[in-house]
């Protein structure tokens, strides 16, 4: 697997918004089936998996309180089985696409293979499950039916140590990138769990984080971080250099448009409000990317999914000048 040498970044045109309050209420994670979109929701407006489609139609819910209490992450496999971490019951719950419980594993503890508030979760290159064992300050790898394979990391603030890790992802080389939530950084570990590098520190400046909750890597090696308390998503390139931030550009989802059009007062208020406010991210919880280079942000506080489409030209080494040691002012 190789990454393009460099990119001509055209930008991220806004693609679309999905969902609305009371449908995709308080979304914490998102997963994709062949036709449907699964949105994991958690909060006062419903804790369940909401099923919608690309036309933004509401197809009902799966799961709910009988299956999980504090769901934190969602994974959808090739058969459209859904894996959900439950950090209240220290479990991974598996259900089929009709919501039938098919498996559940995990027990509370700090021994290897035991869990204490499993939160973020992803597949590795072999299709095994890697998850953040938050209260134990470590990462664990399991087979899909819960057999422990690997554990690494420990609680702390030093290199390779973790403080309440949350979201995580595995890139195309098998590196594990972890949102080291309470340490305000992203850490990269090799496939064997060895520490490789760290991105960021506490703060509100570019490249800094306030409680990052999730990380994703696309096919170009670009790294996306949901900077939860800063209400933004930050992009770093494959060399972990800061590129840009996303603050949200939401348009009206199809269901949202329908809603507003049938409410005279809502129409009036929206006509007179500060429109910019309606576009911004609020406590974005999860970022995901797909193989079409679409960027999905669960805009938790706004009950919707914001989607961008990456637009770049891939460049080989011969298609771009070499790196320069000195800056130049003459840049035409």
């Amino acid at each position: 697997m190789t990454l393009p040498f460099e990119l001509l970044r055209s930008g991220y045109p806004y693609y679309m918004t999905l969902g609305q309050r009371r449908v995709t209420s308080n979304p914490v994670d998102i997963g994709f089936g062949k036709e449907n979109v699964y949105v994991l929701t958690r909060g006062g407006l419903g804790t369940e998996v909401r099923v919608i489609n690309w036309e933004d139609e509401n197809l009902g819910t799966l799961g709910g309180a009988s299956l999980f209490q504090w769901p934190a992450a969602l994974l959808v496999d090739e058969d459209e089985n859904l894996y959900v971490t439950d950090e209240a019951n220290h479990k991974v719950v598996v259900m089929d696409k009709d919501g039938e419980l098919i498996d559940s594993w995990g027990e509370q503890g700090s021994e290897s293979g035991q869990l204490n508030r499993p939160s973020g979760m992803c597949f590795d290159l072999e299709g095994n499950i890697v998850l953040s064992d938050a209260m134990n300050g470590r990462i664990q790898r399991f087979t899909r039916d819960g057999k422990p394979l690997q554990v690494f990391g420990e609680s702390g603030e030093g290199e390779g140590q973790l403080n309440m890790p949350w979201g995580l992802t595995v890139d195309q080389f098998g590196d594990v990138l972890v949102a080291d939530w309470k340490n305000d950084r992203i850490q990269r570990f090799g496939p064997d769990g060895e520490f490789k590098s760290a991105i960021g520190s506490h703060g509100t400046e570019k490249g800094q984080f306030r409680r990052p909750s999730s990380v994703a890597v696309d096919g170009h090696g670009d790294i996306y971080v949901s900077d939860w308390q800063n209400d933004r998503v930050q992009l770093f390139n494959k060399d972990e250099r800061y590129i840009q931030s996303f603050h949200g550009n939401a348009s009206l989802s199809r269901s949202g448009k329908q809603y507003i059009l049938s409410n005279l007062v809502t129409l009036r208020l929206r006509a007179e409000g500060d429109f910019e406010k309606t576009q911004r991210l609020n406590a974005p919880m999860t970022v995901k990317v797909d193989d079409q280079f679409r960027l999905f942000i669960t805009d938790f506080g706004n009950h919707r999914i914001q989607i961008y489409q990456k637009d770049v030209v891939e460049l080989s080494e011969t298609e771009i000048a070499p790196k320069m040691r000195n800056p130049i002012l003459f840049t035409t």
């Binding site: 609305q20 929206r270 500060d274």
Partner: peptide, 12 residues
């Protein structure tokens, strides 16, 4: 200031 409406995306 008139706040934006609750629906479809929550309070302002």
């Amino acid at each position: 200031e008139q706040p934006l409406p609750l629906y479809p995306y929550g309070h302002y």
